[in-house]
Simulated scan of single mutants.
Amino acid sequence: ASRNTAVFLVGLLLSCVAMRSGARILEEETPSSKGEEQLLELPTLPKVELSPFPEVHLPPKPELPKVELPSFPEVHLPPKPELPTFPEVHLPGKPELPKVELPPKPEMPTIPEFHFPQPEAKP
Rank of each mutant, 00 (worst) to 15 (best):
E27G: 11
V100C: 02
L97I: 15
L42H: 06
T85R: 03
V56Y: 07
P84H: 04
G35A: 11
H115L: 05
K66Q: 11
P79D: 03
L45D: 02
H57I: 03
V56W: 08
L83V: 07
L40D: 04
K47H: 06
P62W: 03
P59F: 08
E63Y: 07
V67I: 07
S21T: 12
L13C: 15
F72A: 02
P112H: 05
I25M: 14
L97R: 13
L26I: 12
S51V: 09
F116M: 03
E27W: 11
I111L: 05
V10E: 04
V56F: 11
R3Q: 14
L40R: 06
F114W: 07
P119C: 00
P78T: 00
P98L: 14
F8A: 15
E120C: 01
P73A: 06
K94F: 09
I25H: 11
V100D: 00
K47E: 08
S2T: 12
F72E: 07
V10L: 09
L83W: 09
V75Q: 04
E55S: 10
Q118S: 14
K105V: 15
H115Q: 08
L14S: 01
P70Y: 02
L13R: 12
P70T: 12
K61D: 04
P65S: 10
I25K: 13
F8Q: 11
T44S: 11
